[in-house]
Simulated scan of single mutants.
Amino acid sequence: MAKSAVKFRDTVAAYDRIAGEIRAGRFAPVYLLMGEESYFIDRLAEQLAASILDEAERAFNQIVVYGKDSDAGQVINLCRQLPMMGRYEVVILKEAQQLRNIEKLSLYTQKPSPTTILVICHKEKNVDKRSALYKGCAANGTVFESVRPRDYEIAAWLQQFVRQQGFTIDQKALSMLTDHLGTDIARIDNELHKLTVSLPEGTKRITDADIEANIGISKEYNNFELCRAVVTRDMQRALLIADHFARNPRENPLLLTIMALFGQFRDLFVVNYLRWLARHKGKPFPQDAELMGILRKNNTYVLNEIKQQAALWDNRKVFQVLGLLREYDAKSKGLNAGGAPDGELLRELLLKIFLL
C-alpha cells in the first residue's frame, strides 16, 4: 500500500472542520475515522456520541459494538434497524480493525440507511483506500485520516490547542511540556487538563512555574535549559543539569535529550549556512517570516535567540556536534555503549562537545 500523503496539519484541519459540522448538527450517514493517531479518532467519536441523540434517545437508539466481539454481518443488521421514537439510530463500531470480514461492510456503506449514522473507528492503520469499503465511505459519508505528529510539529499544535482552551503558554513552558511528553497527544491533553483545572481562578497564562508545580517537570533542570547552556557554552550549568538527569533517569531519558540537542544544532547549522550563502553567493538572508517557515518555528523570540546563538558556533564545529549526537543516539539505544548508564553517556557527550 502506498504511503499516505496526508500530513499532520491536514489531520488537524480536517478534525476542526468535522468537529464544527458536528456542533452545527450537520451529520453524515457514515463516518470512517481511521489512522495511527487514536486521539482525534476518540475525540470525534465521543463528540458524535454526545451530539446526535439526546440523553433519553441514547438508551434506545445508540449502540456501541467492538470489532473483536462482532462481525460485519451483525453490524450491517444493526444499521438496518429502524430507530425507536427518534430520527436516528447511531451505531458506533470501536476497534474496527479487529472486525471479522470488515470488507463486507461495503455492502452497507455503498447504500447507507438515511435513518442510521454509522461511526467506524479504525485505529492503528488506514483502511485500504483501494477497497470498496473505503470508496463507499468516501462517496456516501465522511472519511477522516488521523496522522501522528512529528516532533517538530507538536509545539505549534500545542500552542494552538492551549489557545483554544482560553490560555496562553510561555515559550519555556511550551518547550518543557513537549520535551517531557513528546508527541503523545492523549497524554498531553490529559496533563494539560489537570494543569488548567489546578490553576488559580482567573489565570490565563501558563508559565514554567505552573508546569513545575502541577506536572512535576523542573523549571531549572530540563532539556530547554540544557540546550541553552550548551549553545551558550555554559559548561558548568550544562554539567549541573546533566548530573540532575543522571539522578532522575526515568524522568529524563537520554534519547529525548539527544533529540532536543540535535534539533537545536540543526537550527544553528541552517542559519549559519544561510548566512554563508548571503556572504559568499550573494543570496539574500531570509526575512524573519520566511526563516520561521524554514526552521519550523512560530515565535520571533525563539528565532532571535537562534540567530544570536548561531553566531557563537562555526558550522564546522556544528557539523562535528551533529556527528557526536548521531554517535550517542546509537549508544543510547545500546550500540557500542559498553554498558555505561545514560547519565555517564550524557556527561561524556557534553564534555566532547565543549572540547571541540
Rank of each mutant, 00 (worst) to 15 (best):
S4E: 10
K7N: 09
K7W: 12
F8V: 06
A13R: 04
Y15F: 12
R17Y: 08
R17G: 03
G25E: 14
V30K: 00
Y31W: 04
L33R: 02
M34Y: 02
S38I: 10
I41M: 10
D42W: 03
R43V: 03
R43W: 02
R43F: 01
L48I: 03
A50L: 15
I52M: 14
L53N: 06
D54A: 05
R58W: 05
Q62M: 15
K68I: 09
S70V: 07
I76T: 06
L78A: 10
C79D: 05
C79Q: 07
Q81E: 11
G86D: 03
R87L: 04
E89S: 14
K104D: 12
L107Q: 15
L107S: 11
Q110C: 14
T116Q: 04
I117P: 03
E124F: 08
K125F: 02
N126I: 00
R130Y: 04
Y134C: 11
G141M: 10
V143L: 10
E145K: 08
V147S: 00
D151I: 10
I154S: 02
L158F: 09
Q159C: 09
T168M: 12
K172M: 12
A173E: 12
D179K: 08
H180N: 14
T183G: 12
T183K: 05
D184F: 07
I185M: 14
A186M: 11
R187D: 11
R187V: 13
I188V: 13
K194M: 11
L195G: 11
T196M: 15
L199Q: 14
P200S: 05
T203M: 12
T207I: 02
A209D: 15
I211C: 10
E212S: 13
A213E: 09
N214C: 13
N222D: 09
E225V: 10
V230L: 05
A238D: 06
D243I: 06
D243P: 04
A246R: 09
E251H: 07
L254P: 00
L254Q: 01
L255D: 02
L255V: 07
T257M: 08
M259I: 09
G263K: 00
G263F: 06
G263Y: 01
R266H: 05
D267F: 00
D267A: 09
L268T: 01
L274W: 00
L274G: 01
W276F: 06
L277R: 06
A278D: 12
A278I: 11
R279A: 13
K281I: 11
G282Y: 03
E290Y: 01
L291H: 01
L295Y: 06
L295C: 12
N298C: 08
N298I: 08
N299C: 11
V302E: 04
L303V: 07
Q309G: 02
A310V: 00
A311N: 04
A311Q: 09
D314R: 14
S332N: 07
N336V: 03
G338K: 05
G339I: 09
D342F: 13
D342N: 13
R347A: 15
L349A: 14
L350W: 06
L351A: 15
K352H: 15
I353K: 05
L356K: 15
